[in-house]
């Protein structure tokens, strides 16, 4: 998901000069891009030692925290945009974190692998869990403990009273706006709390 085209597709959603919180910021590449190309400021949250080090190397403000412990260090509405890029699917408390994302940020942007992408459906039809470039893990060793679809997220967003500002799929770095639930490996949602 760190391909440049995908990152740029996400970055386009972030307003110039926004104050950004990137939950599960990985090696800090997206934050770095936002800082360099869009004049953004902000912080990344990351748990893995190697990623924290990579962020420090890049000069990104990284905070080594466990998202499962919540976002207590962040005040309400303290960020323009909170990003959860390929993070949601790793969280035991995914719904709580979604609410926390909406609490801390005026806008939220969430991206995650869309399990209803057609190759995944085909695989399940054949009786096997999908193993693809986007979902490269076997069912028994996958870190993706929350496996959902584009449509599932719409339902979850509605349940949590999130107003969806924009939603689309991403496939090979291209936006997919026609039948994204079947045609895109990645679901992207841009929302605010109502």
């Amino acid at each position: 998901m760190s391909e440049t085209s995908t990152m740029q597709a996400i970055a386009r959603l972030v307003p110039q000069g926004a104050r950004v919180l990137d939950l599960g910021c990985g090696d800090g590449a997206l934050l770095d891009l936002l800082q360099r190309t869009r004049g953004c400021t902000g912080y990344g949250v990351e748990y893995a030692d190697a990623n924290v080090l990579a962020c420090v190397r890049r000069g990104v403000n990284v905070l080594q925290l466990n998202l499962e412990d919540g976002l207590a260090v962040f005040e309400d509405n303290s960020f323009d945009v909170v990003l959860q890029i390929d993070t949601l699917q790793h969280l035991r408390n995914a719904e709580t974190m979604l609410r926390e994302t909406a609490r801390v940020g005026r806008h939220g942007i969430v991206a995650f692998p869309n399990f209803a992408h057609w190759p995944n459906r085909l695989s399940v039809l054949r009786g096997r869990m999908p193993v693809t470039r986007r979902l490269p893990y076997q069912w028994y060793d996958t870190p993706n403990i929350r496996v959902g679809t584009y449509k599932d997220f719409e339902v979850l967003a509605g349940k949590n009273r999130l107003r969806i500002l924009d939603a689309f799929g991403l496939q090979d770095g291209q936006e997919v706006r026609f039948l994204p639930n079947a045609r895109a490996g990645t679901a992207v949602f841009h929302f605010e709390h109502s």
């Binding site: 030692d49 420090v56 990284v62 905070l63 080594q64 260090v73």
Partner: peptide, 21 residues
């Protein structure tokens, strides 16, 4: 240390924080 992190965040200061296991 997280208390210091929070106070810096509240003041919008640049901070990196590593919690070494």
């Amino acid at each position: 240390s997280r208390e210091i992190v929070k106070a810096l965040l509240d003041n919008r200061r640049d901070v990196a924080y590593a919690e070494i296991d």
